[in-house]
Design a binder for these strands. Structure first.
Length: 479
RNA sequence: GGCCCGUUCGUCUAUCGGUUAGGACACCAGGUUUUCAACCUGGGAAGAGGGGUUCGACUCCCCUACGGGCUGCCA
């Protein structure tokens, strides 16, 4: 762990355009941590005119499902992370992986091993009992070919037993691991299938990946993987092992923390842009920048800005950031994303007329909502149809006196000009006429117009509703 | 057990040997006000503990504590 960024190989390999990848295993929903890893890769590549690739690590046939693959693609799509080319199936490349294993054999970088799982387990058992290292040392490493049995065998990496392996990591710095801490990992199982540790390396190499940005649970693995690169004479990519995300309590994120899948966040009504912003800021920073656009994130994102300790999810801050993004979103895009949210949340779709009213109301609503459900709630005045049924609090604001005031206000509004300024002036005049403050007038107006006591500004609502609807609702309420 | 990584306000973080340790979210108090939101002003709030190195450590080194990861013919 030393000097960053001085000795960081951040731009190695130097002369190639950046290629990053996201490589999830399809065993469940796209986890929020996975989403952030994908985001970092996407940001890094897109900010440098590079390519961002997607590879599905489906070599575990037991646990991999097509549904999970679909969930990952859907999650990435919602987050707005687009990848270049087709998603690569790791399983489909198994022949290539086996070929590399055989090549390692030919180069003397690997050897055939006939040790059975039972033998290996017995070895570890004994090692544990005697307090020795449980790293397995295969008796076949230097066996005479004359003694080779005629039976299925695994292929093991012939790892150096002395010296050390140095992982130059763009985030963690220089990590040194003694080679006697690493064993001869299996690269090809005795049934001929490759293990992950080999497959990642082969795939990353073949796909031309220059920067491997992934969770720091792979940091130790990087040392082993580097041995494969070295054995094959391939250039090692830039490593960037990022800390994982934890729950609000600091523990590893799990189901009991609530939303862990990316899709959960969509269903809860967080806008994707806010999500990207928040996730980018979790474990990465650019000075004091807190709220920024995708374009800024792409421009600013760099490996040296990534922190080294795990970050906790903070839903309050997520909401705040999302609120800012809703406020600065383009109306049409917002409306479309809102529709996507409603589908994801299982809400009935808006009817054409409602969509229209919502669209008109959006400018006054988006300043006040942090999430889509909140926005929809505040939009209720524009969505409901007459007669507006007041809730209890609103009903009590519509007493006899108030209704009388509304009635007289109706007269003024019939001829009023329907601009914000004119409406404000008309309302102020009406309040003055009855010798009451604006607030006293606004309360029954809210009740009449929205059936609630908490609403957007009254003049704003009137503008959204239009003169006819406004007068009709006032008429309903004034009786 | 062994190895690796981490530890600054409650939370996300800035700081890359010299700062009154900065910002943001949250919180509290005022202000604005037409309810809510927003906004403005102010406030409380931090370097895990212990040793070094240095004129000077949050920053470099070591130890301890705590958290996390790896240690599979899982990924």
């Amino acid at each position: 762990m030393t000097d960053r960024p001085a000795d960081r190989p951040a731009d190695r390999p130097a002369d190639r355009p950046v290629v990053t990848r996201f490589a999830p295993s399809p065993t469940g929903d796209l986890h929020i941590g996975g989403g952030r890893t994908a985001l970092f890769n996407w940001l890094f590549a897109r900010g440098r005119g590079g390519r961002f690739l997607l590879r599905i690590e489906d070599t575990d046939r037991e646990r991999s499902t097509p549904e999970a693959t679909q969930a990952i693609l859907t999650g990435l799509a919602w987050l707005g992370l687009d990848w270049d080319g087709e998603a690569v199936s790791q399983f489909a490349r198994r022949d290539r992986h086996a070929e590399v294993a055989r090549e390692m054999l030919a180069r003397g970088a690997a050897y055939r091993c006939w040790s059975t799982p039972a033998e290996i387990e017995a070895f570890r058992e004994a090692a544990r009992a005697e307090g020795r290292s449980t790293l397995f040392h295969s008796p076949w490493r230097d066996a005479d070919p004359a003694t080779w049995p005629d039976a299925p065998h695994a292929i093991r990496m012939k790892a150096p037993r002395t010296g050390e392996t140095v992982v130059e990591d763009a985030v963690q710095g220089r990590v040194v691991i003694r080679n006697d801490q690493l064993d001869d990992m299996v690269v090809l199982r005795s049934d001929g299938t490759p293990v992950y540790m080999l497959a990642v390396v082969v795939d990353d190499h073949d796909m031309g990946v220059t920067h491997v940005i992934r969770g720091d649970d792979h940091l130790n693995n990087a040392a082993r993987q580097q041995m494969v690169y070295d054995a094959m004479g391939w250039e090692v990519p830039v490593w960037a092992h990022i800390p994982l995300i934890h729950g609000p309590d600091g523990k590893k994120l799990s189901k009991r923390h609530g939303a862990t899948a990316v899709g959960d966040y969509q269903a809860q009504g967080y806008p994707a842009a806010g999500m990207r912003n928040y996730l980018a800021r979790l474990g990465w920073s650019h000075g004091d920048a807190e709220v920024f656009t995708d374009a800024q994130a792409r421009e600013w994102f760099d490996l040296s800005g990534i922190g080294r300790s795990p970050a906790r999810l903070d839903f309050k801050k997520l909401e705040h950031i999302c609120g800012r993004h809703i406020a600065m979103a383009d109306d049409a895009a917002l409306l479309q994303e809102l529709a996507g949210y409603m589908t994801a949340a299982g809400l009935p779709a808006l009817m054409a007329g409602q969509r229209d009213h919502l669209s008109r109301a959006l400018p006054v609503l988006k300043e006040r909502a942090k999430t889509f459900p909140e926005l929809l709630d505040k939009a209720r005045f524009a969505l409901v149809t007459r007669p507006v049924v007041p809730d209890a609090a609103a009903a009590s604001a519509l007493d006899t006196v108030s209704r009388g005031i509304l009635k007289s206000l109706t007269l003024h509004l019939q001829s009023a000009s329907w601009t914000k300024e004119a409406l404000d002036a008309t309302l102020s005049a009406a309040a003055a006429e009855h010798g009451i403050g604006f607030g006293k007038l606004a309360a029954p107006l809210r009740a009449a117009l929205a059936g609630r006591t908490v609403t957007p500004g009254v003049a704003e609502m009137m503008q959204v509703l239009g003169r006819d609807e406004t007068l009709a609702r006032l008429g309903d309420a004034a009786g």
